[in-house]
Every structure is written in C-alpha cells, then in structure tokens.
C-alpha cells in the first residue's frame, strides 16, 4: 500500500517522491476458501502411501518503508496456505485460504521437511497452479506421475557407428521432481541431476548407475563428434521395465 506524491516546480522539473506507509506481504481474501484437487499416479497403478500435500503462495514484495522506484529491493514472501494428504489411490484435495496478491501458487507433495515424509519416494513440486482456470473456487490439477526411487542403469551401446565420439549429458530427477502445469509454460525444465560423459570410438558400451523414480523419463542430450560435430540431438528416453533401466544405441 503506498501513497505517491508528485511535485512539479516552476521550471518544469518533476520530482517523484514515493513513500509507502507499510511493508507489503501476501494478503488474503475475506470470505473465500480455495480447493486444490488432483491425483498422483503410480507407475503401473500400484497402491501408494499417504503423501503429505502442502499448498504454498509466493510473491515478491517491497520490504522497505521508503520506496524509490527502481532502487528499492524486493523480497520473496512465501506462505503455507493449506495442507492435506493423499489417499492410497493418489487422490488429494487441499483446502486453502485464498491469496489475493500472489505471483505463484504451488504444491509440494511428499516434502522432505514434512514430518509425514515418505522415504524412498520423490518430492513433487507442482508449479503454475494459478495459471489454471479457477472453477467455482476450485483448481483441478492434471494427474502427475510418481514412482518409488529405485536403482536403475543407463546403458549406452555402440552398434553401428564405429568411428565417432559420443559426448552426452543425462538430465533426470532423483529425489525432487518439478512439474509445471501451466499450459502456456515454455521455459526450460529445471532438472535435479545431470551426468555427462563421452564414449570414444574404441569403446563399445558405457553404463551409468542412477537413482531415479521408477518409470520416469530421462532427457538425453548427445553429440557425435568426428572432426567437428556431426549430429546433435536432445531426446527423451523412456523407462524400460524389462531391463529395469534405459538404453541408447547408436
């Protein structure tokens, strides 16, 4: 909340003095509650533990009493707005208070800081909720996948190409998985883990050990090099249930 005073002297110079009466922070609507509903789905539809589900609102606010446009730093304000837990079928519904000046609303499912955190399962950060349509004070979150964190292998096999060097980068989520449900989101996903390496022409295979939620897809960026980059590609490699892992052949 601020009061702005604009003064103009006889020579036409404009001075802007802006003062704010109090610091700004997240505030909440009177007479309103929101419902955030959704489902987490296990790999192969197995029964799930009861995950804690927390809803947060956040925003950037000016914290200084004196506000000078462009000079006063802002500070992030994050509030817990509601909490619940999921059912064995993975359904959850969080009743929250209703923020009125937030930038983001997001969910943390199975957060590590929560006392009900379930070991061996990843934490899901579901972002972009406030970009979804609000129907009758209810956000309906698309179903998101979750899998138990397991040991898996990523195998790279040289089959037909015998002369090029393979340079690769694996990107995947291990214990924290970020999901943006904003349909208009075009930014890059933040991957928790990255492993890079190369396979020289005389090497026929490389095996990388991973800890990854069962069923998750891996992002695989690679280049084939031989006196310069011949091929460059960024692909998704799905989980292979039979081999309990991932495989790339070239």
């Amino acid at each position: 909340m601020g009061v702005y005073l604009v003064c103009m002297n006889k020579n036409g110079f404009i001075l802007l003095f802006a003062f704010i009466a109090c610091s700004c922070e997240l505030s909440y609507e009177d007479n309103r509650r929101l419902s955030i509903m959704g489902q987490v789905k296990a790999f192969e539809n197995e029964s799930l533990p009861n995950f804690p589900v927390e809803a947060y609102a956040s925003g950037e606010f000016i914290k200084s009493i004196l506000f000078l446009p462009g000079l006063t730093p802002t500070q992030e304000d994050v509030d817990l707005i509601g909490a619940s837990s999921s059912t064995p079928e993975g359904n959850y519904g969080v009743t929250t208070i209703s923020p009125e000046n937030q930038e983001f609303i997001y969910l943390i499912i199975n957060g590590k800081e929560n006392r009900d955190y379930v070991d061996d399962w990843p934490t899901l950060a579901v972002k972009g909720i406030n970009s979804l349509p609000l129907n009758g004070s209810r956000y309906e979150i698309p179903t998101v996948a979750i899998g138990r964190i397991e040991d898996a292998r990523f195998e790279i096999h040289r089959t037909t190409n015998t002369q090029d060097t393979l340079v690769y980068l694996l990107q995947y989520d291990s214990s924290i998985k970020e999901i943006n449900v904003d349909p208009s989101f075009v930014g890059n996903k933040n991957w928790e883990m990255e492993i890079g390496g190369e396979l020289m022409p005389l090497e026929v295979e490389n095996v990388v050990s991973l800890k990854i939620p069962e069923g998750d897809t891996i992002r695989f960026y690679y280049s084939l090099i031989n006196d310069g980059i011949l091929t460059e590609e960024n692909i998704k490699i799905p989980y292979n249930l039979e081999t309990n892992g991932y495989r790339f052949e070239f």
Binding site: N31, R32, R33, L34, S35, T95, G136, S137
Partner: peptide
C-alpha cells in the same frame, strides 16, 4: 450462516 465462497463440495462445511 457465513458468506464464504468456496468449492461446491465445501459450501455446507464452511
């Protein structure tokens, strides 16, 4: 009898 706007399934509750 409160004037709370909420999701239909929560109206009676709130």
């Amino acid at each position: 009898f409160l004037n709370i706007d909420t999701a239909p399934e929560l109206e009676t509750f709130f």
